[in-house]
Design a protein around this nucleic acid. Sequence first.
DNA 1: ACCAAATCGTTTGTCACACTAACGTTCCTC
DNA 2: GAGGAACGTTAGTGTGACAAACGATTTGGT
Lengths: 160, 160
Amino acid sequence: MSNSTPDMASSTDRLATAARLRNLGTRLLSLAAIQSDRLVNEELVRAGARKWHYAVLATLDEFGPASQAELSRRTGIYRSDMVSVINELADRGLVERSPNPADRRQNVIAVTKQGHRHLLKLDKLLAGVENEVLAPLTPPEREQLARLLTALVDRHGQNM
Amino acid sequence: MSNSTPDMASSTDRLATAARLRNLGTRLLSLAAIQSDRLVNEELVRAGARKWHYAVLATLDEFGPASQAELSRRTGIYRSDMVSVINELADRGLVERSPNPADRRQNVIAVTKQGHRHLLKLDKLLAGVENEVLAPLTPPEREQLARLLTALVDRHGQNM
DNA sequence: ACCAAATCGTTTGTCACACTAACGTTCCTC
DNA sequence: GAGGAACGTTAGTGTGACAAACGATTTGGT
């Protein structure tokens, strides 16, 4: 049945390694995230957007106009990648990029009315996807999951 | 404070969208997985391995010799990517690839003794990483998280 | 017995994302 | 006023998920 050498494995080994993959927490996390991301991206593409577009719009809407570097810190997007994200958003008329007179190194990024409308649309869209992803869980289970994941994220992360 | 048009947003809107990103489950999942993956990969690289190496070795050890296509189904690795994974494992002497006389389309992949030893090493290594990733959680919380994630994964997945 | 469809291993290529390094410009500090 | 830090930007790396097509086989239906 198995090509492993069973005579070498202690009974505890066999218990511990019987279904390694299914029980490996880090793998579960990866798989769940992959599936979730796949659904999210599918929906976002249909709306002509990407994950990062939403992150930036939501951050701007919550905290107001900000420099690209600050957006980078808040969203976790590298500032080198932020350039093209802002380019795309600006091209679509969803944000405005203007130089900061108070600090000529910086740009000031601000959401436009159109950007705000777009954000509200994405809100609904993402709520729908999340609902689908979390479908197998009851509402209290969803809360619990969010709690646990937040604990994980808050620990290791200086980003966000 | 915010450049969103507050007069347009109902009070429920403001509550619901105040901290969109922090409360977005799909994003929490992504972030947690990214951080976890980062740690996992760091450790695996130091051992000269990759995520998929472990997945294949563990699957072979659990179910015995299998074709590449079957490994692909069990691990979720695309069969086009499986080729190079097996190449790498075979180069390191961790698995053996031989044609299947009963079905000449297939190869039979089997773990070697060396591969089994390597797997046990990776087991320990990954247990350590998992322990680190889940550090902020109590043991019952870890179980709960595994339960919830398994529910998510089992639902959407034909893979695994 | 034959032909169509399915399966397998493989090659090639695409796309997005995480991440690094370096640049010129501007600001801040001492 | 000199040195270092922060900013926006460009360029490039590596990897993982995924699609498409191929020749060689095997399988199923008629």
